[in-house]
Amino acid sequence: MEVPVGIRMIVCAFAGALLLSAPVRVVAHHGAATFDTEGELTVKGTVTEWIWSNPHCFLKFDVKGTDGTVKNWAIETGNIADSSKRGYARRSFKPGDAVTVTLQPAKSGAPVGRLRSVVLADGTKFQ
């Protein structure tokens, strides 16, 4: 059955409106006291572990520095329910995946932080 153009336009407009109203990020347990909310950085690395847990899921990945040394980062995101709402799942990442991660680093200087977005090699993006 061919759907009339007018109906298709209405459905497309509605779908567009749904896309624009993407889920709102839920506030985490803690904020500016721990992480540098003004100092976001983007790094490329290789996933070593994806921990699907509460109170936070977190992604661990290796980043090779310009001097050849490798640093293992651990970056937290929301809990399981909130992460599920944003499209994450237990199998979103596996060891060996190449990722581009944007994060807010801890003020302590340790390689830990809060996740802002992850992009996989195929362009799949998580926020």
Binding site: T34, F35, I51, S53, N54, P55, H56, F58, K60, A74, E76, N79, I80, A81, S84, A106, K107, S108, A110, P111, V112
Partner: peptide, 24 residues
């Protein structure tokens, strides 16, 4: 409904991996 449990072992893993590393 989703199963959302704050298991002690998961809380400990978070403390060891991230929280303890954020000390100034």
């Amino acid at each position: 409904v989703i199963e959302q449990i704050y298991a002690a072992s998961e809380a400990q893993a978070y403390q060891d991996t991230i929280a303890s590393q954020t000390k100034p």
